[in-house]
Design a binder for these strands. Structure first.
Lengths: 328, 328
DNA sequence: ATCAGATGTGGAACGGGTTCCACAAAAAAC
DNA sequence: GTTTTTTGTGGAACCCGTTCCACATCTGAT
């Protein structure tokens, strides 16, 4: 509760001198420094960060927006980004945007209200106009927002290619493709278009199933799988994000469809859940830690006044062959 | 960038009047209100929350400390708590404490430095003394910190009991029990002691395997499973947290040990990952949403000056019978 | 007509640090 | 011995809302 002026009074100095001791700036004699330090410990003085923040107009807090941290991809991303931001000296404010009301907008507004210094958004909601109005530090994860806003993403085109080639290599003739909604402008569409392009080029039939863009819950995924299996399956290959792939695999097992003999499965993302199945999934893995590292670096630059317009960071994906495409 | 004084000048009023308009407090004539509102929109005025915070000595931010959001239990908890805090009007600052350095202490210090209004800690590190020094709003998840700090936890004793009874009911004679380190003071020990008590009372042999308290990564879990299977298994039942249970199940399948015929498995926690196995796991499920709801309510009370010393909230667990203990 | 109360408004002080500037004393330079 | 520099320190203004208090006007009651 003691203020800098209390300390100053106790040490018989001016508040400016105490401030200098606090920040190790300017000239302070050894003698007065000690006097002040004693006074500080005596009064149990702890500087009020709020006052500092007001003066400096910054809080050292970065908001991280994701649809839902309960989703493994975002959980891992948030885990990494928090860690990265921490090394930069920033704290992480977390916002899950899948909730009633427009939490996304509200969090963006925190930029204007000086509550956070920057925003990293991994959210794929529909209205992009709001972002274009804001000329503050924003970094987008896997989403095009505006020319001013740098994007961090993986090379989805390569991702689609790797998946397609693996399924082709394993002899598939007709595949089921779970793809994201085209309502959202995101680099991830490249994976879908590239996957389908290559498949078609090789004369392989592709059945596309468009997933809703804002659903990440178990119920939805179960519904999708049920939906798929309600009609006779005429495919020998499947490509979809982790949780869809896992659930497809499980349903196949329940129906005594052997994997990979009868159906091959390739999962996209490669979060830790793909390590929880038996057989282990073949995955196209996103380097989530690198996505986080790049996002943190970019936001740090933006917060410190550097500009990086039109910037797009593309990271490499990797195919990890498991036992759902080949019998190793 | 416009300040309240800029608005006041433009509207030919005092800053106090602008403040009253901003907060809808005190008397303001309709005429001046309009003048001020016009000035505000003209100047594109957005109040600086930092200045407000300084005056009110609060930020509306609650820090949530967890070992790692990448762990599904904490991911789900954080998802829920963020949502709950949001409804109370609080923002969530996230801190993962499994990193170099003492992040936990650093985040606790934010209470003193007025960066956050309260802390909800789900961290199980070893030194508790620091918490006893702090007389600020803190709520502990599943951990005893000090008499002043309320604890939210599930009824682990009942959890241990449910698991034990299920395994007994299914005819187990010798079980493997993965338990947490006794180095940490936590309500969760009740589940282990109760489980073992009941088992022993029923003449069932219990092999205990003590897990490290601060490891939540895949590598560690894999190592544990490998360790377990490196010796001949002489059990027909297993009880452990979700990820251990899942990995045990997978390894059993790899070794053609049939579940539940030869070995029954009960998982503890019941996070979404237990819905990703085939067969589906039998679990003792923690009501994570309620843990979050209670934590949020308590921290909100504390932040608003109410005291709740010696308080402990115990929530009920539920057994969800899956196909790893019985053939349904 | 008189007075209490409601209504309306602005100046000043405050919250708690930070920094600019002025000024003094000591050390170094010439 | 005089002039620079360097070192050391404190007061005041500032960051930007908020609230207290004083003062003014207007309404309605007696």
């Amino acid at each position: 509760m003691a203020s800098i002026r209390d300390v100053a009074k106790k040490a018989n100095v001016g508040p400016a001198t105490v401030s200098r001791v606090l920040n190790n700036s300017g000239y302070v004699s050894e003698e007065t420094r000690e006097k002040i330090e004693n006074a500080m410990t005596e009064l149990n003085y702890i500087p009020n960060e709020l006052a500092r923040n007001l003066f400096h107009k910054k809080t050292g807090i970065i908001a991280v927006l994701v649809p839902s941290v309960a989703n493994p991809f975002f959980a891992e991303f948030v885990e990494c980004i928090e860690s990265e931001l921490y090394t930069y000296g920033y704290k992480t404010m977390l916002c899950n945007t899948v909730k009633e009301g427009n939490a996304e907008l509200e969090y963006l507004d925190m930029l204007n209200r000086h509550i956070v210094d920057g925003v990293i958004t991994g959210v794929h909601s529909l209205d992009v106009e709001e972002y274009k109005q804001i000329h503050k530090p924003i970094v987008a994860l896997d989403r095009y927002l505006s020319e001013n806003i740098p994007v961090v993403a993986v090379n989805h085109k390569k991702g689609g290619e790797l998946a397609a080639e693996e399924l082709i290599y394993c002899g598939c003739k007709s595949v089921l493709h779970f793809c994201g909604s085209k309502a959202v402008e995101s680099p991830y569409h490249n994976r879908h278009s590239e996957f389908e392009r290559i498949m078609k080029k090789n004369g392989i039939k592709v059945h596309s199933y468009e997933l809703e863009w804002n659903r990440f819950d178990a119920d939805y995924y179960e519904k999708v799988i049920k939906d798929i299996f309600s009609n006779p399956l005429e495919v020998d290959g499947v490509f979809g994000v982790d949780q869809i792939a896992i659930r497809f695999l499980n349903e196949a097992k329940r129906r005594k469809i052997s994997v990979p003999e009868e159906i091959k499965i390739v999962a996209y993302d490669g979060t830790f859940v793909t390590g929880l199945t038996e057989p282990r999934l073949t995955v196209v893995a996103q380097p989530i830690d690198q996505l986080a590292r790049q996002s943190a670096e970019l936001i740090s630059q933006l917060v410190n006044g550097k500009t990086c317009k039109n910037k797009q960071v593309l990271l490499d994906v990797e195919l990890h062959v498991g036992n759902t495409t080949r019998n190793l």
